[in-house]
Design a protein around this nucleic acid. Structure first.
Lengths: 153, 153
DNA sequence: TCTAGATGGTCTGAATTTGAATCATTCTGA
DNA sequence: TCAGAATGATTCAAATTCAGACCATCTAGA
């Protein structure tokens, strides 16, 4: 703790730079595939994935925003885009009239099914297959802990 | 390789989701600190860091773009912003009149010195200190390999 | 010496993201 | 029951990002 503001040690620096670069490049690659094969941005894709996984294929806007980790206003924009494309539709919520359901349409499910295999292929290609099983394990543990800590702040 | 488009295994999925979430949340935290303590965005900060580390405190625009991993037009915009803030200045290049030097000013160096300790503190807090030394080692190896593969494509 | 093609940077207009302000609805406690 | 705080979502303007067009300069080969 005494060296809080000092330069990182070489191994620490190496890990940090690798993390930054990998995050950047992997995301770039994922984005490219989604755009090419389905005309979707990464956040849009994640919205579809979350909705697909949710009970009834729908979620309230604010829950969705939390899950996808985007701001409310950004989600509003993205859902509007997806709605225009016919992949999602909005419905008023009965029990709480402030909130809004975002619901996956049949077309949305189809679009998701269309890009998802390619998406998985990319994830395998750029991340999974480059790592040993032990590394995959450590990555899950370590970064899972990092994410958890940041989530409940 | 035969399962290229199939769902990921649980451990693979866990690693992938942790990676995504961690990248997202860590970047958010870093961004917040840089903005708060120095009025800088993360890419702007990285530009200053690269220039600081470069011989003569300057780099050609295209080299800089490659290093920071941003598009040319994005770098043009960011350097313009930094120039307005007085942290960087542009100079024509003698030997190749197409290219432009981006050079760190004294003010720029000072600004960097001002935010950097806080930046390091955040990196330590959210990443380094959450990991064991072994995990740091593995992260550097594994993600370094991931990044390298993507860089030379 | 030309010329076609590459390279380095900027510019432009459209798309996206941000953050604050706003609006309606729901919750809370006196 | 009612005022004030909280919550869910959208809107707006400003800032940023993107992709491609564009311009100038350099390089290589005929």
């Amino acid at each position: 703790m005494s060296d809080a503001g000092e330069p990182l040690e070489p191994r620490e620096l190496r890990a940090w730079m690798a993390f930054l670069a990998a995050a950047h490049l992997v995301d770039q690659e994922v984005e490219r595939q989604l755009k090419r094969d389905g005309g979707l941005s990464h956040p849009e894709f994640e919205v579809l994935v979350k909705l697909h996984g949710a009970a009834g294929g729908r979620m309230r806007m604010s829950d969705l925003a939390r899950e996808v980790m985007v701001s409310k206003s950004r989600l509003t924009y993205q859902v509007t885009q997806l709605e225009r494309a016919g992949l999602v539709k909005r419905t008023g919520c009965e029990s709480d009239r402030r909130s809004v359901w975002a619901e996956l349409t049949g077309e949305g499910a189809a679009a998701l099914a269309g890009v998802r295999p390619g998406h998985r292929r990319v994830v395998r290609e750029v991340l999974i297959e480059v790592l040993t099983p032990e590394e995959i394990e450590v990555l899950g543990d370590a970064l899972g802990r990092v994410a958890d800590r940041l989530r409940d702040r």
